[in-house]
Design a protein around this nucleic acid. Structure first.
Lengths: 390, 390
DNA sequence: TTGAAAGCGCTAACAG
DNA sequence: CTGTTAGCGCTTTCAA
């Protein structure tokens, strides 16, 4: 019943498919090539020279291997070599482009070296994170990159001490000895806070991410720095929210507006929170930046096409991921080609531990900031799309 | 030099960390518990009943295992059981939220069953996809979910035939026997095209994704359907672009505007292309929807906060991912608890192969469509935020 | 220049 | 109720 002119597509690669459920093993190859498994192994592992295997034999073995579509079982290999070629990556939410990008960089960075990435999604829960760590450990990952939920680090430290290299990114911890990479959140926060302050804002509401997480604390610190430098203090009641989510931003905004009707600006610790905030403001009939100014962190591809393009501090996510990968590989004693790993503590001013890498961020000024409302000045946002790096 | 009041944090979980580089093995546990490895193995694998192991022994073994922080090596286990507990997921770009969400669903769906996800990012290149497939195969994945680059399926089919279950999602292939899950692109395209047509648009430019990919072909088909039903034909010159990217959308838009100045609407096959298009239009001083209407596929969290909220057909991504996971698990003979796997071919009208699952999409009408420009009517977009499912 | 054999850590007959 | 034994597929001494 096949069409008359049907030509069997004779696999040009010459690699035949093994019989289902009967994977071709090194033994098969050896047998078919008429050599021992040891010789076959050596021939295929580029050890021909080392063991002075005759070129003829080597070729023969390689040929047979190709014909049979042989692929050495990495699990058998792992067992023998005690190297799994697996790297674990655990993030709070892989559908968040921030974490996805980090995972991507790791994947791209290690793939060429024969490693593969085992992915874990902790759903922002420390307990799940914990479980995933165990699961991946059992799978014999050789190293772990984790973007922790951010509140608890004991299990990670212990793991690292037990001999499994762990590096953390983004939600790093205070004064911990785990190698960490993060954005320079303090400088970033200070810079973005300054654009608010320069316009005259003093009553600034803060939409906080997870309170106990270092990024949240550090960003708050940066804001405080800026305020102090401008000669005023932040009202402690101007802080609300406790998650890096849209919902949190929405709720916190409403809460803050009720707490202090004088508030003229919002400092959102992440884009989702800023979005939630904008919804809340819209519901209350506030226009941005006329009635309320707002700044945030991070960007997304269409940010400039929004109704109110946000002024933000954007993290260099790929850099973050690449750096984390480099640190990881260095701990595995694999030399990462991209470029030499820079020394930790790129940013000078803070008491950076011996293993904290900080990557600079970029300030993107758009049009979500104007002078405080009581002046009613509509045309206040002067500098648009001006970029400054620091 | 340590602080005077430093108390050693005595690990309350009671699970000691193994000596670095000297992982605790089943043998250790057995020895310490005074039993043989087999007994230890059985006790720890819940086979106590089956082998009638005395509760005392079982408890003892479990206790020792806990004390030592024992974790069975999955690689040894895999070798013996011939089951790796690994599922491969290959996507064109994990930093794209669409694919990230799919990966997420797979990860969440299989994690509870003890499986882990091995991630591969093909960077939209078939060659890399190919290489990743090999790499993951060597790592003994038990099944593969791939969102293919979309142009070539031979290697996947061959792989599946060779006994490794493969399921493809999104960029499925025509008339192929691999289990596939995708959105009902034809119906989706028809619906979104109809909102254009109902407003009177006839000169519709198409921003195509990868031409050879089935989603692109199918969406074009849906548009053609709608046009035919309305009694006109699409000009073949109104198609441009060949990638699911912003750049492609930008270039294609410029190209189309030059080719046909009469064009009044744009049909973008993905959000990035639509965004690129909007940039191009902005550069040429076109206002949306006054001077040009536009519809697209897929949504993103802030879509409604854009300058011009797009009318789109949105895919049910989590559903897509869950369905794919269910299909995967079924092929592994694991019963996926969530819900029974529905029969394939959800959508009735097309000659669906025995293993194609189609999931319905939702039409989201926002304000990027108005009547064609020559009437100059500014207030034409009537129905906003109206939702229709089909 | 090549083979034989041991063993990575675990499970599953097959005995007791 | 428990132990002995034989591998899973591979790498690597050690011997020829």
């Amino acid at each position: 019943m096949k069409p008359p002119n049907h030509r069997t597509p004779d696999t040009p690669q010459g690699s035949a498919s093994p019989a289902p459920g009967h994977p071709v093993t090194l033994k098969n190859v050896a047998a078919r090539a008429g050599v021992s498994v040891s010789t076959a192994s050596r021939a295929l592992n580029g050890q021909a020279r080392k063991y002075r295997i005759s070129p003829t034999t080597e070729k023969a073995v390689r040929q047979v291997a190709a014909d049979l579509g042989f692929q050495a079982s990495q699990v058998a290999r792992s067992l023998r070599l005690k190297r799994s070629g697996l790297i674990g990556v655990i993030v709070p939410d892989i559908s968040n482009p921030f974490f996805a990008s980090i995972a991507r960089e790791v994947s791209l960075g290690v793939e060429a070296l024969g490693f593969s990435v085992l992915l874990g999604d902790s759903r922002e829960e420390t307990e799940i994170e914990q479980r995933l760590v165990d699961q991946l450990r059992a799978k014999q990952v050789e190293a772990l990159l984790v973007c922790p939920v951010g509140v608890e680090s004991d299990h990670l430290v212990k793991l690292d001490r037990s001999g499994l290299p762990v590096v953390v990114a983004d939600r790093v911890f205070d004064g911990i000895e785990l190698p960490s990479v993060t954005s320079d959140n303090r400088a970033a926060a200070r810079a973005v806070a300054e654009v608010l302050i320069e316009q005259g804002h003093r009553k600034i509401g803060v939409l906080s991410g997870i309170r106990d997480s270092l990024p949240a604390k550090t960003r708050l610190q940066g804001l405080t720095d800026a305020a102090e430098q401008a000669g005023f203090n932040l009202d402690s009641s101007s802080l609300a929210g406790n998650a890096f989510t849209e919902q949190s931003g929405y709720d916190a905004t409403l809460e803050l507006m009720d707490r202090d009707p004088e508030m003229t600006a919002i400092f959102a610790m992440c884009t989702p929170a800023a979005i939630g905030s904008m919804r809340a403001l819209a519901e209350r009939g506030y226009a941005i930046p006329r009635d309320m100014s707002i700044v945030a962190f991070d960007d997304h591809p269409f940010a400039d096409l929004m109704k109110t393009p946000l002024t933000v501090s954007v993290q260099d996510i790929p850099r973050l991921g690449q750096l984390a990968t480099a640190v990881l590989l260095k701990r595995l004693d694999v030399d990462s080609s991209p470029q030499a790993l820079p020394p930790p503590g790129t940013s000078a001013d803070s008491p950076s531990s011996a293993s904290l890498w900080k990557v600079p961020t970029t300030l993107l000024q758009r049009s979500s900031v104007a002078v405080p409302r009581h002046k009613g000045d509509r045309a206040a946002s002067s500098r648009v799309q001006q970029t400054r790096s620091f």
